[in-house]
Amino acid sequence: MATYLNQADRLLRPRERQLPTLQFLPLMVLFLGGFYGAIMGTYGGFTGERLWQVLYSATKVPLLLLATFSISLPSFFVLNTLVGLRSDFGKVLSALLATQAGMTIILASLSPYTVLWYLSFENYGQAIMFNGLMFGIASLTAQLILLKFYRPLIRQNKLHRLMLILWLILYAFVGIQMGWVLRPFIGSPNEPVEFFREESWGNAYEMVYQIFLRALGY
């Protein structure tokens, strides 16, 4: 336990030659992401079938992060090789993994607020908004970690900046759809508990566009 905390601390305050150990990072995503997911899934309570939602959400949050990461990684690897940054890829990989792990640390640290929110307000739509806000905060602040790791790389070679931007675009493109597919994370109180929603096999971007059109009055 103490080693884990120590590793998490190192990740938040990376110093030279004191980077967190690589094999800890996916574990951190699994446990801390799972932790936040479990908290997220408690919206409907613990009674009977609703307990499953807690379990589902606890698997879905790490799945969201790790699956998006591994789907985007191959093309990022080829791109890095093509611009001649292959020799740095080990560092790049640990920077990216550290960001994932860092995001789950931040999420886990925000989970008490989610609990408080669930205890105080009942509205499902607001619960979604609040969780969205927590995810937003976590992903934005996780970029600070990413930048901290990337800054020495960018100093070495300017191309790393371009690669960083490309990574963020790629990751967001896949991640948004992944988040859409893996719904529900919280679980609507009016619907039965299920891992995937039947009608969820849609396309996030198309939905957003349709909502946008509807908002304009078309």
């Binding site: 789907i71 191959p74 896949v174 859409w180 597919v181 849609g202 396309n203 198309e206």
Partner: peptide, 26 residues
């Protein structure tokens, strides 16, 4: 070869979107 390396590495993303999307146009 360079083009196909890039294409092949983007394959996973396409496969993921293919599974999760019902829109042919997209």
């Amino acid at each position: 070869g360079v083009a196909l390396a890039m294409l092949g590495s983007l394959g996973l993303i396409v496969a993921f979107f293919s599974v999760s999307t019902t829109s042919y146009g997209f």
